[in-house]
Write a protein that binds this DNA or RNA. Structure first.
Lengths: 314, 314
DNA sequence: GCTCGGCTCGAAAATACGTTTCACCCTGTG
DNA sequence: CACAGGGTGAAACGTATTTTCGAGCCGAGC
């Protein structure tokens, strides 16, 4: 067999941009549509939007019916269903029926309007809160527990951990690194792309690299991840685009949800919320698995800071 | 071949024996089964009971599957579906899926317990999400709109803005500064206490200083705020302790909520969520009030980053 | 006691529905 | 302008559902 071609860095690629079909969550459908929308073709977007907009109505339609209603073909409908993580249209329809029943009983439509320039502050607070709460639910619903488990396992036993994030994601990267440091792991967040790559090439099997990018195609983050990947480190991507380039070099992909964005509410806001939730989950998972050493470390770091506070008042 | 497309209505209308007696009520299914049971044949009763007993499980089965499971035939299953008021099995199945989703969502709320060391990851995710959502609601509810309004007004017209935060709060401080920079304001986040004080004494009336500290008594943050306060700058404190020392030097106080914390879930986690919500509200408020300059600035910063992304994938 | 009518029920035919294939067409590119 | 590549729908195909039909089963009447 001459199949033994050495790939770029001599590691069997897990390749597969679509590693695990998403679990057919009922409530998370609208979120899923938003997450996947950018990677969809126009026709598919029409179908996805129709479906997300009127679950009850669509649940009553056959493939042909839905195809007509969206002005597309049966094939496109089925393709869309597949993309949303269902085996076929039949199952999407079932999920739709479930969703419809849920929101019929829940009654709360909860469709927040966009924040506009002349909203009073009370309105702004209410809408922001609502949106962020929604983002959290969406993220939790769409999180792949298998990927999370794998990522946690890798982090918990890592010799060394590098985290890459730029711009808004840089804060999230720092947050993760800070937390991991607190439980005694060797973690570092890089926001300088050059230093990140320089450090990445030092990584080996047993080390872990985490890349955080909402768009999934921030080159400054992808490059260090690829370097780490090629050198044998275990790589994790936290991204809102499960089909983005960053996932090519990721052993494990954790998907964050994408909220509707508007002029006043840049995407960075909800992606950050989403990313932080994922990071927290990672952290708790790792803390659980390294509890023996994590607990004393946490305690020690708390003690160390005590004198930095002014004497208790009151 | 085209004959194939003739709908089942080569006949006038196959309305069938059942004119339209029962609308397919989802929740009332169990009741319906009981009411109809006496008028059913034995095989049909078996089907009806199975279906009422395990809606979720049955929704996953095809006619053939359900027939096997009940030890009957497809025909009987269809007849049962008809008797229950549905046009056919397909629709019964849809209703079943709805019912399943309904009772699944109804039985999910009770996860208020602390996260413990041996919780499975799924539990961790659920609890974290629940907690953070709670934190958001609490924060929004407790936010003093008057103080928020005043803070926004000060920020919107500030000549220069300094933000102080240490440790976990440092990330929040950076987030605020980053956002304000994006809309063209002059903002800087300080995490080095010495530099922070050094800068604080430069501030004057018309400048704004923001201190972020959960405990309200982090000296490294209080000192620069006091310096700014003493030099005539408008000062804002974002803290979880409205009675903390930091508020002595704050013109406006924005209170963040404090969630129950535990060993595995350090306070930093929920305070961060809370602080970020406040920061977002501040930001949106300021953006609204400086819309004329904020909108183009936002757009420009977006444009500037475009080339940092790899070409679009599909 | 036998037969007849009505009824339940399942096997299998008939059909509607969902899925897959494939060729067309549009778009962007050298 | 030719061409590669991928999005798209028409139609072929396979599967799930529905219908048909007759076998089996009772109970009532002859």
């Amino acid at each position: 067999m001459k199949e033994n071609f050495v790939r770029r860095a001599g590691r069997p690629r897990p390749v597969a941009v679509t590693p695990r079909p998403a679990p057919p969550e009922p409530g998370a459908l609208a979120a899923k549509v938003r997450t996947m929308a950018p990677s969809m073709t126009r026709s598919m977007q029409r179908v996805a939007e129709t479906v997300a907009g009127d679950p009850a109505g669509c649940a009553a339609l056959t493939v042909t019916g839905l195809a007509e209603r969206t002005g597309t073909s049966e094939a496109t409908v089925v393709r869309t269903a597949r993309l949303l993580g269902y085996p076929g249209y039949r199952d999407l329809r079932l999920a739709l029926a479930g969703l419809a029943a849920q929101q019929a009983s829940g009654a709360a439509p909860a469709v927040t309007a966009d924040i506009s320039v002349d909203d009073p502050l009370s309105e702004v607070v209410a809408k922001l809160t609502q949106d962020e709460r929604q983002t959290l639910s969406d993220t939790a619903g769409a999180l792949d527990l298998g990927q999370l488990e794998a990522s946690v396992a890798a982090l918990a036993t890592a010799r060394r951990i590098d985290v890459y994030g730029i711009g808004a994601s840089s804060l999230v990267a720092q947050d993760l690194a800070q937390k991991l440091l607190r439980i005694g792991l060797i973690a570092h967040a890089h926001s300088d792309p050059h230093l990140a790559v320089t450090n990445a090439v030092q990584l080996r099997a047993g080390d872990v690299a985490v890349a955080i990018t909402h768009s999934g195609r921030t080159v400054d983050v992808i490059e260090p991840l690829q370097a780490a990947f090629d050198h044998g480190a275990t790589t994790v991507a936290i991204t809102g685009r499960p089909d983005g380039e960053v996932t090519h070099y990721a052993d494990h992909v954790l998907t964050t949800s994408t909220a509707r964005e508007s002029e006043l509410r840049p995407a960075a806001m909800s992606s950050r919320t989403s990313q932080l939730l994922v990071v927290d989950c990672l952290f708790i998972g790792v803390a659980q698995r390294t509890y023996e050493s994590a607990a004393p470390a946490l305690h020690a770091s708390y003690e160390a800071l005590a004198h930095r506070h002014s004497p208790r008042e009151r």
